[in-house]
Write a protein that binds this DNA or RNA. Structure first.
Lengths: 211, 211
DNA sequence: AGAAAGTCGTTACCCATTTCACAATTTAAT
DNA sequence: ATTAAATTGTGAAATGGGTAACGACTTTCT
């Protein structure tokens, strides 16, 4: 709310930095330079310094950055003290992959519940997350603001409409459908087919460059 | 090879356009305007016209675009007549989601084989794709240039090195690790935790805007 | 036929992001 | 104590992408 000047491109890299700093810390490293960081996360070192500088002068000239200090700073900045609860809609293979991933450790996010239309799955418990029938979605959501959409393409529009009516503020959409939502709801699309085809296209047309 | 001036941002949208045009065609629509297209794929109509214009004047003023013509044109441009074969490494939940997805219909890409380290999975057949043991990777790959990496984080570096030595030219990396490869190999990263955390971060810090 | 409406392709501008390059500062070495 | 090496933070320039607006042309309407 108060860091409104941070570029979106920077914000997208923060989780990456955070995770890597965590690794360093666990390895016992107490100091790191933008150059080292750059090699590890594959982001230009000037970009890293610029990214950090939006938060103030976090480093020391001639020295680099103190890992622990940086971690502590980002932990606060990324609102890591407050756990974010999300719901997963669609417990197929892709959904199950999410359920088994532990977002708590580095991201302080937890998938609180999942919904599915298949009677076999309802009642199950994958990765410690209970699965309810999708008909119970609205009554069970109980204040959750974010949904991960991993359902078949055909059901997308109907479910989206229900999520909007219910009142989510963010949707991570893994279906190929481009969903329509009111302006105040944020949607991020991740389209596996598009990602794969884009890679193939780049290989054929830009054979030697890097992204 | 010859379309080297096409911006990467445009190239990433092409698969999206292509898929939607296919839908239109199947619905029997023979004509479409950039405005209609815009509403369906959620891309500004001026951007669409600009994107198309990189390939020449494909439309007609006052009329719009001929769906069939556009499809035929993109089919050639996206090299859709030549099937691209890819290999999938890691047949866990995420990998299985890929195996069950049919990339042939819209993308002319086929997952030819999968590899996994688990003895139970080897010999199985998911979505018509055979699963081999990962030790047989190099001997089985047989000319395949593109790999989808859906293995646990810990195994990433070792497998990547083997893929590089074998000679892939492109990797779609779903592991959280940022892999190191020679410059001539293209890697696209899709990091589920980063995507989720970025969405959450945006919701908290940029509550009303759109991406 | 003539007028009105629709739509493209493109020019000109805008904005966000990346990167270069260097002064300032600190650390490390001799 | 001096010098050399390392490294940040940032001003300025470069890159890349998006969009408003409009002339030109086509279609549709009356």
């Amino acid at each position: 709310m108060d860091q409104n000047k941070i570029p979106q491109a920077t914000a997208k890299r923060l989780p990456l930095y955070y995770r890597f700093l965590n690794n360093l810390n666990q390895q016992g490293k107490s100091r790191v330079s933008s150059k080292e960081l750059s090699e590890a996360v594959k982001v230009d070192s000037a970009t890293i310094r610029r990214d950090f500088s939006y938060f103030g002068a976090l480093g020391k000239k001639g020295y680099g950055y103190n890992v622990e200090y940086l971690l502590e700073f980002f932990r606060k900045t990324l609102d890591q003290d407050e756990v974010t609860e999300v719901a997963l809609i669609g417990a197929g293979n892709l959904g199950t992959a999410f359920l088994k991933y532990n977002f708590m450790k580095n991201n302080n996010i937890v998938i609180k519940m999942a919904f599915d239309a298949s009677a076999e799955k309802v009642g199950e418990d994958i990765g410690g997350v209970p699965i309810y029938h999708i008909d119970e979605m609205e009554e069970r959501m109980d204040g959750i603001q974010v949904a991960i959409l991993t359902i078949p393409a055909g059901e997308t529009d109907g479910v989206t409409e229900r999520l909007v009516d219910y009142g989510v503020t963010g949707i991570l959409n893994f279906t190929p459908a481009r969903i329509t939502v009111p302006e105040h709801i944020r949607v991020h699309h991740i389209d596996l087919a598009v990602e794969l085809q884009a890679l193939v296209y780049f290989l054929k047309h830009y054979p030697l460059e890097n992204e």
